[in-house]
Design a protein around this nucleic acid. Structure first.
Length: 301
DNA sequence: GTCATATGTGGAG
DNA sequence: TCCACCTATGACC
C-alpha cells in the first residue's frame, strides 16, 4: 500500500477522526509499549505526511513518527454514519498490532486505528521531525514543494532516472508503482541518465506526479491509465490483483502494452523490480539491466 | 505445513 | 549488491 498517497490519505483520516480528542495509546504487541504509556490519555493535535513519513502530534511537543516500509499498514476505523458516534465498539486486536489509537469521547470511543508491520514507529519531537524532513526532497503532494530542488539533483546526476525517482532525498513520496508508471507516461526509459533529461521533460513529470498522487489520495489506489486506456474504453477486462489500480506497466510483465501491444518488460534496478515497454520507452537498450530481466526477455523472445 | 512475494529502507560486506 | 527486518496472504505439498 505505501507510496506517498497512502500516507497523505492516512494523515487526512487521522486528522478527521482524532484531532482534538483525548486518545488512548496502546501497544497490544508490546514493541511500542514504553512510548505508548507516555502518550496514553493525552490530546492529539494533528497528523501530517511528508513523502512516505507520517507524523502524529500529541500535546507537549511529542510526535509519533511512522514509516510503513514495504508491508506496513495503518487501518483507521470510525463508526457508521447515522449511528451515535460514541457507540463504536473497539474489538480485540487481531495479529501484530504495534500501535493502537482510540479516540475517546467521554467513556466511549469514536474511532480507533491499528498499526501493523511498520519499519518505523518512534516517539520524537518537532526537532526530530524536522530532521527527518530535512533529509527529504520535495513532495509532489505538498503545495509548498519546490520542484527546482529535485531538478537540480536530477539534471546534474548521471544516475538512471528510474533510480533518482525512487531516491527520497531527491523527490519524496514516489515508490515503485509511480516510478514505473510516470516514466511510461512520458515515454522515458528508466535507465536514461538524469543529466540527459530536458528541463521541460522534468517539468512535465513533476506536474504529472502532482496529478497522479493527488488522484491516488482521492481514490485510495494507484490509477495511471489515461481515459482512452481504461478497461471500458478498450473493452478489456479490468485489472484484478491486490492493488487493484489500472496501470500501464507495473507488474504486467509479458502482458501486451496498452498502447502498442508489445510485451511489457521487467528487470531489476538497484534491487527493485522495474517494468517498462521497450517500444514506448525506447531511449536505451536493455543490456545494462540485471540478469533476471535478460532471462525473462529471452523467454519471451 | 512451507515458501515466495510485496507499493521500502538501511546496514554490512 | 546482498541481506535483514516488519507482517499478511496466497500458492503449493
Amino acid at each position: 500500500m505505501p507510496e506517498g498517497h497512502t500516507l497523505r490519505r492516512l494523515a487526512n483520516e487521522i486528522t478527521d477522526a482524532f484531532v482534538g480528542r483525548r486518545v488512548r495509546v496502546l501497544s497490544p504487541q508490546g514493541r511500542f509499549e514504553v512510548e505508548a504509556r507516555q502518550l496514553d490519555g493525552t490530546l492529539l493535535l494533528g497528523a501530517d505526511s511528508v513523502g512516505k513519513h507520517l507524523f502524529i502530534e500529541f500535546a507537549g511537543d511529542r510526535f509519533v513518527h511512522v514509516h510503513l516500509g514495504l508491508i506496513g499498514g495503518f487501518a483507521v476505523h470510525t463508526g457508521h454514519a447515522g449511528a451515535p458516534e460514541a457507540a463504536l465498539v473497539v474489538p480485540e486486536p487481531v495479529g501484530q498490532v504495534r500501535l493502537r489509537l482510540i479516540a475517546m469521547q467521554g467513556a466511549g470511543a469514536t474511532a480507533y486505528a491499528d498499526l501493523r508491520g511498520a519499519t518505523r514507529c518512534d516517539l520524537t519531537t518537532s526537532a526530530g521531525r524536522d530532521l527527518v524532513i530535512a533529509g527529504l526532497g520535495p513532495d509532489p503532494l505538498r503545495p509548498d514543494a519546490d520542484p527546482a530542488r529535485a531538478w537540480r539533483r536530477i539534471s546534474r546526476s548521471p544516475r538512471p532516472i528510474g533510480d533518482l525517482l525512487l531516491d527520497q532525498s531527491v523527490l519524496a513520496g514516489v515508490g515503485n508503482v509511480y516510478r514505473a508508471e510516470v516514466l511510461f507516461r512520458h515515454r522515458i526509459h528508466p535507465l536514461r541518465p538524469g543529466n540527459t533529461l530536458r528541463r521541460g521533460q522534468f517539468a512535465a513529470i513533476w506536474a504529472d506526479l502532482v496529478a497522479l498522487l493527488s488522484e491516488g489520495v482521492r481514490v485510495g489506489r494507484i490509477d495511471t491509465v489515461r481515459p482512452e486506456h481504461t478497461p471500458e474504453a478498450m473493452g478489456r477486462a479490468p485489472r484484478v490483483d491486490d492493488h487493484g489500480g489500472e496501470v500501464y506497466v507495473y507488474r504486467r510483465t509479458g502482458a501486451p502494452c496498452l498502447v502498442c501491444g508489445t510485451r511489457v518488460r521487467t528487470g531489476t534496478l538497484a534491487g527493485r523490480n522495474l517494468f517498462w515497454c521497450g517500444k514506448c520507452q525506447p531511449t536505451f537498450r536493455s543490456r545494462a539491466l540485471g540478469s533476471s530481466q535478460a532471462q525473462r526477455e529471452d523467454g519471451h523472445g
